[in-house]
């Protein structure tokens, strides 16, 4: 399909849940080839719909955010029928691993991530899967990657869901450090979006959490 113009063989980076990530060269630049693979357990019609729509939205959003100067991989090439996206390879460790290693940089990165997520929200985009393994700490700051579940939205509900999912992923991945990590994240977020907006967003986040199954804080209805 595409001829590699650089030496060295392609390298499998990750066998993700919905896509295969391969590092290879594209037009002389180290790149990530993301291919959404068919899932034999899914109805074919559903499969086609998901692969096409997710690839399309991901590519559009990557290009748009990059044009706004935000730290996301640059978009190089798209083939919707193949479910293929070629994008910039961002060099650096995952934020998750930096935290596991107890790096001093971690808290500063969380604050930068908060700023980046706020800017993404400002651009009318929600990421849909913010986790510390979807953040690469590059030479010139943190990069948000994997916009596979991203969508266009400015609704407070969707923005708050984005934050809710991030909080939950920090709770399950970095339980012991969650308070410090989240405090720095929210500090960065508020720098961009302002204290008032951030506070109203956090009220919505709490409301979403309360909607979950068997939430202890939710008051039991009287009279049962």
């Amino acid at each position: 399909m595409i001829k590699s113009t650089c030496p060295g063989s392609p390298e499998l980076i990750a066998l993700g849940a919905e896509a295969v990530l391969v590092k290879a060269c594209y037009e002389g630049m180290p790149s990530i080839f993301k291919v959404r693979v068919r899932k034999p357990y899914r109805d074919r019609g559903l499969d086609t719909m998901l692969i096409r729509s997710r690839s399309e939205v991901e590519a559009k959003i990557l290009a748009e955010l990059r044009l706004k100067g935000l730290n996301v991989p640059a978009l190089y090439y798209v083939d919707l029928s193949e479910g293929l996206i070629v994008m910039e390879f961002v060099e650096g460790p995952l934020l998750r691993d930096l935290i596991y290693r107890g790096s001093e940089k971690a808290l500063k990165c969380l604050e930068e991530l908060g700023e980046l997520v706020a800017s993404v929200h400002d651009a009318g985009v929600v990421h849909g899967d913010i986790t510390t393994s979807n953040v690469i700490v590059g030479g010139d700051g943190v990069y948000l990657v994997d916009f596979g579940l991203a969508k266009y939205s400015r609704r407070l509900e969707d923005l708050a869901t984005d934050i809710h999912l991030f909080i939950r992923s920090v709770e399950s991945t970095h339980y012991g450090l969650k308070e410090a990590l989240l405090r720095h994240f929210m500090k960065g977020y508020a720098k961009v979006k302002g204290r008032d907006f951030t506070d109203s967003l956090l009220i919505k986040v709490k409301e979403i959490r309360m909607r979950g199954r068997y939430v202890e804080e939710r008051r039991v209805r009287r009279g049962i």
């Binding site: 066998l15 849940a17 919905e18 899932k39 357990y41 559903l46 986790t131 393994s133």
Partner: peptide, 18 residues
């Protein structure tokens, strides 16, 4: 049914990858 079951399998697979 296809949508509901596929969503469950997808999040299971994502969790396994994670």
């Amino acid at each position: 049914r296809e949508i509901a079951y596929s969503a469950i399998i997808e999040v299971s697979e994502r969790a396994l990858a994670h």
